[in-house]
């Protein structure tokens, strides 16, 4: 029963990932072409109907999965690659270095992804890459905090103290002892951040700060559906569902992983 989160999350993500994989090679119709009448209801051949321009909704959802995952992978891995080392350094350093790094992360934390995306869009124009950058940068502080807190816990343990007393270089301590021990915590955070990144990407696309209008993304589909809400409310349902599924999937997976990795909970069971 405790594994329910993990299973449901895993299944949802499997659906999204396979959609994205299929979308790389095949969609029922071209996701950008005008392939049917406008606002056709779900049926055949348009399984989920068509949108306000007559494009096939199912094809656009499938095609959008690809971009959602791409943005998630890019932004979260970038954030982790920067945030985790900084967090570990902060956790292993003397008080003032740690303070500078943590406060730096706190300052960054004050900039929401949306604000960064608007800044980027104003400076270099909105695109998939500015969305990745904005979400990535906004996600860094979370990783810094988590990595630092976890590192400090590990650092107080006897085996690390032993390593340090035997004059093991700090880099080696970080690599050999700290990173493997904080990896589970980070894994949980990656999963949760992934869900948030997909949600953020949808938000940015919705606001027109992400990919161009010829690229089908879930957020943009929602935005386009908004104007038709009165005439064809179903058009907004599908991208909304897709976003909800992806976000929920990654969150459940994160929760499930946490439960699985938490020794205290394991003992109770």
């Amino acid at each position: 029963m405790r594994r329910a989160n993990l299973v449901v999350g895993g299944v949802l993500i499997a659906v999204i990932v396979s959609m994205a994989a299929v979308g790389l090679f095949w969609t029922p119709f071209s996701p950008t072409a005008i392939s049917g009448p406008r606002l056709a209801p779900p049926g055949w051949p348009h399984v989920l109907g068509t949108d306000g321009q007559g494009s096939d909704t199912a094809s656009r959802i499938i095609s959008g999965a690809k971009l959602a995952l791409l943005v998630g992978v890019m932004s979260v891995s970038a954030a982790a690659l920067i945030g985790v080392p900084v967090g570990i350094i902060a956790g292993m350093s003397h008080r003032w270095v740690a303070a500078i790094l943590s406060r730096g992360a706190d300052i960054l934390y004050g900039f929401p992804a949306l604000l960064l995306a608007i800044l980027f869009a104003a400076a270099v124009g909105g695109s998939t890459w500015t969305a990745v950058a904005a979400i990535g940068i906004a996600t860094i502080p979370v990783f810094v905090r988590i990595a630092r807190a976890a590192t400090m816990q590990v650092m107080s343990q006897t085996f690390v103290e032993a390593a340090r007393l035997s004059a093991t270089p700090p880099l080696q301590v970080a690599w050999r002892h700290v990173l493997p021990n904080i990896a589970p915590v980070l894994g949980v955070q990656v999963s949760v951040s992934f869900g948030l990144a997909i949600l953020a990407e949808a938000g940015l696309s919705y606001l027109g700060l992400g990919s161009g209008s010829d690229v089908p993304t879930w957020g943009r589909m929602l935005r386009e559906a908004q104007n038709e809400l009165f005439n064809a409310p179903l058009v907004a349902l599908w991208p909304g569902l897709a976003i909800a599924m992806a976000t929920m999937g990654f969150n459940l997976l994160g929760d499930g992983l946490r439960d699985l990795l938490d020794p205290k909970l394991r003992e109770i069971a």
Binding site: T32, I34, G52, Q53, G208, G212, S213, D214, E224
Partner: peptide, 11 residues
């Protein structure tokens, strides 16, 4: 503009 652009690109 963006919806018109999408339409024009498709056509």
């Amino acid at each position: 503009a963006p919806p018109a652009a999408r339409f024009i690109a498709a056509q």
